[in-house]
Amino acid sequence: MLEARLSQTLLLKKVVDALKEIIAQGTLDCSDNGLELQSMDNSHVSLVALSLASDCFEKFHCDRNVSLGLDLKSLGKVLKCANSDDAVTIKAVDRPEKITLSFESDGKERTADYELKLLNLDQDHMEIPKKDYTCYIQLPSSEFARICRDMSMFDESLTIACSSKGIRFSAKGDLGTANIQLNAGTAMDVSIEVQEPVTQSFAGRYLNTFTKATPLADRVKLYLSEERPLLVEYPIEDYGHIRYYLAPKVNE
């Protein structure tokens, strides 16, 4: 059985907000090590992977691996019933048909329990090879969100060009063109490591969806290589991450 307690529901709210616009449903795999979820969006253009280590939780007990098929909209609705600073305990039995979420206010003046039905989902797990990327950028997550938002006014397609000179985001559409260049520096705290320059185009609406994870982390990491999907990683303190993978657009 699984029993996992977080001292604040806020983290779970942020995680579900970061997932629910890219995937409607997903299977949360629970083990002694913690929680993991991996799922592609319906169009098979992007993939999201969540990892939360057991030590993220105030209490974590999982004596047998259990998979929870979750409808994320429904989970989001349940989480709306809780205050951000309520403690939350997630419970599931072995081979569960439902999970229980219990919320406790500070001092346990108010407790609320919700049962959520689980789904039987087909699990397509992708094998992602662990190769090094040729470009690695770290920047404030709010800046990345701003760039994605501003660029999407111009075109659906956003080009990222990374070289030793810096990283350049550009879009060209009916309105005109937009170019944003970021250079490595300490004021905004941008770091850029480039082994080989990369230029790739991506669908802006997916990047904008990834930025729903902005409240989870102050910094975001971008990993690029020619002919490979982009990896956008939001660390969750020292406990894990949300990673988004996005297939590039290619010229015919």
Binding site: H125, E127, P129, S201, R228, P229, Y245, A247, V250
Partner: peptide
């Protein structure tokens, strides 16, 4: 115009 590639072009299902 560039076409959107599929993620399964890069990664395989296990």
């Amino acid at each position: 115009t560039p076409i959107q590639n599929d993620l399964t072009e890069y990664y395989s299902l296990v």
